[in-house]
C-alpha cells in the first residue's frame, strides 16, 4: 500500500484538477445561469484536439497550445453563441437539456471521429519518483499539482487584483446591479466562457496522462466538478476550489484505507453531509438579491 503522504499528494493533484473544472463550471453558472452538464465532456475533448494535432505532425507543446486555442474558441465562444445565447431565451430548463444533449453529442462524436479505445496521452514529465526526506512522491503528481495551483492562482489574481476581474466578479454576484453601474455584462459573461474554455483544456492536459484519453472520461469528471461545486458552495469560486481539493483527497484516501469498491460512494456521502448541515455549501453564501 502506498504511503499516506504519497496518497495525499496524488489526492491533492487530482483535487486540484477537479478544482479547475469546478471553478470554470461555477464561473459560467454564476454569470449566465448556465448549468453546464457537458462540463465533463469539455474536459474530455481537448485531449483529442491535442492528439489530432500531434497526428498531424505538431510537437506536443504546440499541440497543447492548439488544443487550448481550439477549446477556447469551440467550448467557449461557439458554445456561448450557438447554444447558450439562443437557448437561454427560453429559460434555464431548455438550456440544461441542451447541455445534456451536447454532452452526449461530444461523447459519441469523440468515439466515432477518433476512437472508442483509450488513447495514451503524453505526460508533461517522465514517470519518475522523487525522494524527499525518505518519502517517495511521484514527479507527475507534483507537476500536476503545481500546474493546477498556478492556474488557479493566476485566475484568482485576475479576478481579484484587476479591475476587469472585479467587474467579472460583480457580474457574477449581481448582474442587474452590474448593469445599473454600466458594466458591459455581456462582455463579462463572454470572458467567463472563454476562461472556462481555457480551464477545461488545461485540466484535460493534466488529467489525460493519468486517465488516458477516452471518450467516456467526461462522465466521472463532470460529476466530480458538479459535486465539488455543490460541496464548496455553488456561488463561490473559492468554494469550488475547496470542494475540488476535498473531493480529490478524500477520494484517494478512502479508496486506499476504507474500500476501493465503494470509492464512488464517498463523494456522495460528503455531498449528503454537506447538504444536510450546510445547504449553501461550505463557503457558499445565501443568495440575497434585491434587484
Amino acid at each position: 500500500m502506498a504511503s499516506f503522504f504519497q496518497l495525499l499528494v496524488s489526492g491533492l493533484a487530482t483535487g486540484a484538477i477537479y478544482a479547475l473544472i469546478a471553478v470554470g463550471f461555477t464561473l459560467v453558472w454564476q454569470t449566465s445561469q448556465t448549468i453546464n452538464f457537458a462540463q465533463g465532456e469539455f474536459v474530455m475533448l481537448p485531449a483529442f484536439f491535442i492528439l489530432a494535432a500531434m497526428n498531424a505532425g505538431a510537437p506536443f507543446w504546440l499541440a497543447c497550445l492548439i488544443g487550448i486555442v481550439l477549446s477556447v474558441v469551440i467550448l467557449g465562444l461557439l458554445f456561448k453563441f450557438i447554444i447558450v445565447d439562443p437557448m437561454l431565451k427560453y429559460g434555464v430548463l431548455p438550456l440544461v437539456i441542451s447541455t445534456i444533449a451536447l454532452s452526449l453529442f461530444l461523447k459519441e462524436g469523440a468515439k466515432d471521429f477518433y476512437s472508442s479505445q483509450a488513447q495514451p496521452f503524453p505526460s508533461l514529465v517522465p514517470a519518475t519518483d522523487f525522494h524527499v526526506f525518505g518519502i517517495v512522491v511521484s514527479l507527475q503528481s507534483l507537476v500536476v499539482l503545481a500546474a493546477a495551483t498556478a492556474t488557479v492562482v493566476a485566475l484568482h489574481v485576475l479576478l481579484t487584483k484587476t479591475r476587469l476581474g472585479r467587474s467579472m466578479q460583480a457580474t457574477a454576484q449581481n448582474p442587474t446591479l452590474a448593469r445599473i453601474l454600466g458594466i458591459d455584462v455581456n462582455r463579462m459573461v463572454l470572458y467567463t466562457f472563454l476562461i472556462n474554455g481555457a480551464l477545461v483544456a488545461i485540466a484535460s492536459i493534466l488529467i489525460s496522462p493519468i486517465y488516458l484519453a477516452k471518450f467516456t472520461n467526461g462522465e466521472t469528471l463532470g460529476i466530480a466538478a458538479f459535486l465539488a461545486a455543490i460541496i464548496g458552495g455553488f456561488n463561490q469560486v473559492r468554494g469550488a476550489i475547496l470542494g475540488g481539493v476535498i473531493l480529490g483527497v478524500l477520494d484517494n484516501l478512502s479508496a486506499a484505507y476504507i474500500s476501493a469498491q465503494y470509492r464512488g460512494a464517498f463523494p456522495l456521502i460528503i455531498l449528503i453531509v454537506v447538504i444536510l448541515f450546510r445547504p449553501q455549501g461550505l463557503l457558499g453564501r445565501i443568495e440575497e438579491r434585491t434587484v
Binding site: R163, R166, S167, Q169, A170, Q173, N174, L177, A178, I180, L181, G182, I183, R285, E288, T290, V291
Partner: peptide, 25 residues
Amino acid sequence: IYIPQGRNVFPELSVRHNLELGGVA
C-alpha cells in the same frame, strides 16, 4: 443614476473596489 431599493453593494468586494465599479461609466 439609479439606486434601487435594498442593498446594492457587492458584499465580498472592499468598499474601495465597490466605489471603483461606480466609475465604470
